[in-house]
């Protein structure tokens, strides 16, 4: 990861603050001319991840914060989002695409993150999420 920029922000448990940091990350990608499709996927994943951290992780507790760290380089972006909640087991989240779950809310955010990002990984306690997106055109630029 040559020419890496790294940023970190600690935000309150407030979705408006989540959206501000989301905009900052998107701006970092746009400055590096990431493709529209990449930006779309990262924005969607960030929205889901930040809302999960703020609402489900910290349960909107004003005494708790969310740490957001991101590294951007020419070929990829890596984002770490850590809340101060109890965490959860990602395996306990039901598959929203099973017929019996199709009409139920829940589980779709994680599924969208998995689908639009190259890597999504929770730590063991489930309160820290790492997301990675490899730039769509990155493979072409090497040769």
């Amino acid at each position: 990861m040559a020419n890496i920029e790294e940023f970190e922000e600690i935000i309150p448990s407030d979705t408006a603050a989540g959206r501000e940091v989301q905009e900052r990350i998107i701006e970092s990608l746009e400055r590096r001319d990431f493709a529209m499709r990449d930006v779309f996927g990262v924005r969607l994943a960030l929205e889901e991840a930040l809302v999960n951290a703020i609402k489900h992780g910290n349960r909107m507790d004003p005494d708790k914060t969310v740490r957001v760290n991101w590294q951007v380089c020419e070929t990829k972006v890596r984002i770490v989002i850590e809340d101060q909640g109890e965490g959860f087991d990602v395996n306990d989240v039901p598959d929203p695409t099973e017929d019996e779950n199709l009409e139920k809310p829940g589980g779709r955010g994680i599924m969208l993150m998995r689908s639009f990002m190259n890597l999504i990984e929770y730590n063991d306690s489930g309160n820290c999420l790492t997301l990675e997106k490899v730039r769509e055109s990155a493979d072409d630029s090497d040769d």
Binding site: F40, L44, E48, E103, P105, R108, G109
Partner: peptide, 16 residues
């Protein structure tokens, strides 16, 4: 242009 899973939840409720 953008839609989150929370919005999908509302659409599912609307469908019901």
């Amino acid at each position: 242009e953008y839609l989150s899973s929370a919005a999908l939840g509302k659409l599912i409720t609307m469908d019901k």
